[in-house]
Nucleic acid binder design. Structure first.
Length: 216
DNA sequence: ACAAGCAGCTGGTCAAAATT
DNA sequence: AATTTTGACCAGCTGCTTGT
C-alpha cells in the first residue's frame, strides 16, 4: 500500500475515533444538562435521530460547526487543533529533489530515506540519512520554504535524536527559497559549509566537514 | 396500600426525501 | 448513485390517576 494510502487510513481511523469520543462526551453532557435528544436537537436545529446517531458515533461526517453548536448548548467548548503526528505525504517534486541529491552522492556511502527516529512512539522521520566512514549526515529536503526558523528547530531536534554530526538542508533551487534564506543572515553561521564544498565532499564519499544549505 | 390503566417521554429503527 | 437527514413509528420506561 502506498504511503499516502496509509496516511489516509490513519486519518480515517483517527476521525472515527474522535467522532465516537466526542459523541460519548455529548451524551454525558446532555444527561448532565437534563436535556432529551429531542430538546437538544431542537436547540441546535437537527432531529433527535441525528442527536442519537451523533452520541453513538454513527455520523462519520459530523461537521465541526455542528459539534461546536452542540457543545456550546451543553455549556462546553469544542477545541480542534493539529499536532505533528508523522511524516507528511511527500509529493513528486519532493521525491525528485531528493533524487537529484542522491545522484550527486558517491555510491560508496550509505543512503537511507524515511529513517525513523529511534524513540519508541516517536512518529518523526528523517528524509534522508547519509552514513560514511566516521560521519553521518541528516538531509532534510524542502521544495517550498515557509518558516525557516521553525524548520531549523525541527531539524536540530531530529539531528540530536538521531545522533548525527552533520545536517544538510536541501532546498529546491527557486527564487522564493533563495529569498527566504537570504532574509535570515544567521543561517550562514548555522550552515557554514558552501553547497559546492558539501556536494564535492559527498561526491567523493567524504565528510562535508560541517552543516550546509544546498540548492538543487 | 396496591395493582391496573393511561399518558407522556425517551431512544432506536426504517423507509423516504433531500443532498452531494 | 451514494450518502445524509428527516419524520413516522415502535417498544420500553416512568409517573400519575383511579378503582378496589
Amino acid at each position: 500500500m502506498p504511503t499516502h494510502d496509509r496516511a489516509i487510513h490513519r486519518g480515517q481511523r483517527r476521525g472515527r475515533l474522535l467522532v465516537q469520543r466526542v459523541g460519548a462526551e455529548f451524551l454525558v453532557g446532555r444527561l448532565a444538562a437534563g436535556l432529551s435528544q429531542r430538546a437538544l436537537g431542537h436547540m441546535v436545529g437537527v432531529s433527535h435521530t441525528m442527536i442519537g446517531r451523533i452520541e453513538r458515533g454513527e455520523t462519520p461526517s459530523l461537521s465541526i460547526e455542528l459539534a461546536a453548536k452542540i457543545a456550546a448548548v451543553l455549556g462546553l467548548e469544542l477545541s480542534v487543533g493539529l499536532h505533528p503526528a508523522g511524516p507528511p505525504v511527500r509529493d513528486r517534486a519532493h521525491l525528485a529533489l531528493i533524487e537529484r541529491m542522491h545522484s550527486r552522492v558517491s555510491p560508496a556511502i550509505r543512503w537511507r530515506t524515511e529513517v525513523a527516529i529511534p524513540i519508541a512512539g516517536d512518529p518523526r522521520s528523517a528524509d534522508v540519512v547519509i552514513t560514511g566512514t566516521g560521519f553521518g549526515v541528516l538531509v532534510e529536503a524542502e521544495t517550498r520554504l515557509f518558516d525557516v526558523q521553525a524548520l531549523e528547530r525541527r531539524i536540530g531536534a531530529k539531528q540530536r535524536d538521531l545522533g548525527l554530526e552533520r545536517v544538510v538542508l536541501l532546498l529546491a533551487d527557486t527564487a522564493t527559497n533563495r529569498r527566504a534564506v537570504a532574509r535570515i543572515p544567521e543561517l550562514a553561521r548555522r550552515f557554514p559549509v558552501s553547497a559546492r564544498a558539501c556536494l564535492h565532499a559527498l561526491a567523493l564519499g567524504r565528510d562535508p566537514g560541517g552543516d550546509a544549505i544546498v540548492f538543487l
